[in-house]
Structure formats: structure tokens, C-alpha cells
Design a protein around this nucleic acid. Sequence first.
DNA 1: CGTATTTGACCCGCGC
DNA 2: GCGCGGGTCAAATACG
Length: 430
Amino acid sequence: MSDCDGNFMDDFSALSSPRIREALAMLDQNENGRYPISETFPQTNVSPDPQSEQRSGGLRDRMAAKLGFDIPPLEIGRVSPSANLFSNPILVPSPILVISPGLSLSPFLQSPNMLSNSSSQIIPPCPLPNDAPPETVESSGDAHAMMIISNNNLPHQPIEVDLPPQGGSDDIPTENSGAPLVPSFDSEVVAEADVMNPISLESGSKDDNKDREYNQEEDKVEDHNVVVEPPSRKRKSLVNIKENMVSNIIGVTRRNKTQRVIIQVESEEDHPDDGFRWRKYGQKVVTGNANPRSYYRCTYTGCEVKKLVEKNVDNVKLVVATYDGIHEHVPPPERKSKSSTKNQSGSSISQDPSSQTLGLGMLPSSVSTSQLLPSPLAPQMDMMQYYMDGLSKLPSLPVNQNHGSVNRDDETMTDRVISDGTEVYKAIRD
DNA sequence: CGTATTTGACCCGCGC
DNA sequence: GCGCGGGTCAAATACG
């Protein structure tokens, strides 16, 4: 990629649709040269704001007129429960991004480009100070997922979105390249449960207290979009995710230089499809959850991404999937195999957008998402790309693009804050 | 027959 | 140092 060599627009033009580019251009105009998304809208509280909605509506209309298609209203109604997340002192209000049904989440999982790569573009090639607070990206939605992206223990690192690339670190950092990687990514595993459900924190616990202290301290230096990752060394079970919490969560954390994405999806299936092929290599019942946790490994050659899937202890319809690592490849094409015929049983392959799947990476790179999704969702899909593009300020979109480029830059990820749709709308509006 | 799943055993890190 | 629990391995089994 060319994140750091200044070829943003090259990638952009190659990977983005005109509409998306146009929308991004609008964002650019809005940003006043700085952080159009995250910086412009530090307020991440997702509680419905009538005025905001009204303004957003107007904006939506304008955007619709501008882009030439109807922009569906953001679905934030069900996000409200997640407000608990942000009311918890441990967490700072974070943006919520609604991912509507049918929207592909593969950008987050597949890629380097959507997450890690985005970071590579916004992170100065030089090592960042380790005193930046973790950042969190969260999205929640009526449909499927809420996302949390955080830097474990990383102090706030001002993401210079518009910072001119330096050193051409866009190159995939490899051991040979010696490209500077984001430091301190060997931070401990984040306590996902803490991130995802602060309510579940058990007060009185020594660890929790420590975590809370840590978080509070970190909160002092960050004003938004931050979830302070407690320095927990041991991964905590997700079983504490309560039903009254956000129903859909994606968390992205870092674990020893790998990215961890946590998704909670409402699904009847034990193993919601995400477009990638997985091979189950283990299953275990973990404490606190009668539902066994399944361990999957990406079957793609060379891909070491792992996936843990378990059902919410309180609501079996909620499936929590933890992706450990980032796919360095595009989702495999649909197979005419048994896997593809086992959709109803929760197999790893499902290309049916209407099925209860995450729809992760299911979209052929050469096909517009609009073509694959039910029409009502098509605009949302485009908007998803739009959001993601605007949010990450990425010139490239790994998903639905046929470049098939591989970005192995897991370590350059910044876990950049991604604003929720509301914030994006605000950004657009402004 | 090839591939995927199951499942008990084992390893290892963490907390006490 | 020990026990617990999470994660992984690998042989057996199932399936198409």
C-alpha cells in the first residue's frame, strides 16, 4: 500500500467508488485539515440527540442528493443499552458505529486495510510514545455488531490523520524491512469482558480494582473514544457479557502484536459465517458459561488467524466471536462444497446475505455490495464503506476490491478510533 | 478418500 | 509450588 508515501489518492481512486470518493472529499472539506471524524467529534455518546438526528436527517438528505442515492438513517436506537458502557467510569464514551444487517464486517477482520492498514497511514512511521491511552472503536447496531477497538495499555496517541506520511512505512513491515512498528504492542491481553461490558466487572475484585484505577487514571488524559485496557494478563471470559448490555459488539484489542477483534452477534447459528473458512480445532467449556467455547483456525494457507466462538451465557442467541489476528488475505470464494451447504447448521461458509450471518468478507471483490444485498441494504452497504473510508481516512478499501493486496501490517495498527455513524453524519453535516 | 469435526489429553501462564 | 483454567494438539470419528 502507499499509506506513507503520499499516494493516498492513487489507492483511493483504485479502490473506492466515485460516490465514496466524493463523500470522502466532503469529509476532507469538513475536517479543516484535521481529524474530520475522531477529532471533530469527540463526543461519542450515542444517546439519541433529537437535534442531532434532525440535523443528521437534513444532512442525510443533502448527502443523498449529493451522492445520488438515498442514505438510510443510522440505526442507533438499540445502541442505547450500550450507553452503559460509556457511563462506566472505566470507559470513556466511545463512538458507536451501526453495522446494519447485510453489511460486511470483513473490512475489520480481513484487513489490514480497514484497521491495521488504516493505522499504518495515520500512524507516524516513527514509534509512537507509549503513553497514549488505548483507543477504542465501537460500533453497535440494530443488526449485528458493535465494535471496540482499543490499544492495550497504550496511552493516547494522537492520530495524525492528515499527518504527511513519513518514511514510507506503508510498506508491509516485515522482519527484513525493519519498518518501525507501533511500539508496545506486546502489551498484555486486554480483558475483553471489561472492554465489552464494564458492567460485568465485579467490584471488589482485586484485579478489577486495579483495572479501574488504571482506567481512571488513563481517562484523565483522554477525553473521548477511549477504553482503557486494564493491564490484565489473562484473558477474561466473555461470559460476563450481560444481556442488557450492548447486544452487538466488536472489540478489537491487541494481543502480542496481533489484533483481536471481538464480535457479538445475534445469531441462531453456533458459528455465524464471516466469509472466511474456519477449521474447528478445539472446544472447551469455560468457567461461567455452560455454553462451550469453540476454537477455530482460518484454513487459508499461511493465515494464522484464530477465532473463538461462544454463546452469550445469558442469551444463547448472542454469539460472541473473538478473532485473534488479522486476515492477510481476501475471503475465499464461495465453495460448492459441503461447507457451503451447511449454512443452516452454522458452517463456516455462507454467501447468503439474507442469512443470519455476519456477512464478513462475503462479498466478491469485484461485485458491488449493492448488487448482492437486498436493495434496502445496498445504500447502507455503500454507506458502510463510506463510513469506514471516512473514518479511517483510508485511501484504500480492502474489501470488495479486487486488488487482493495483502497487508500484513498487523503491528502498525493504531486501532484508530472510528466514529459511530452519528458522528460520521455530524462530520458530514459540518 | 479427502476433509472437517469431536474430544480427551496435554501444555502453559497466572493467581493464590 | 501448586492448582486452576484457557488454549492447543492430535487421534479417532463423521461426513460428503
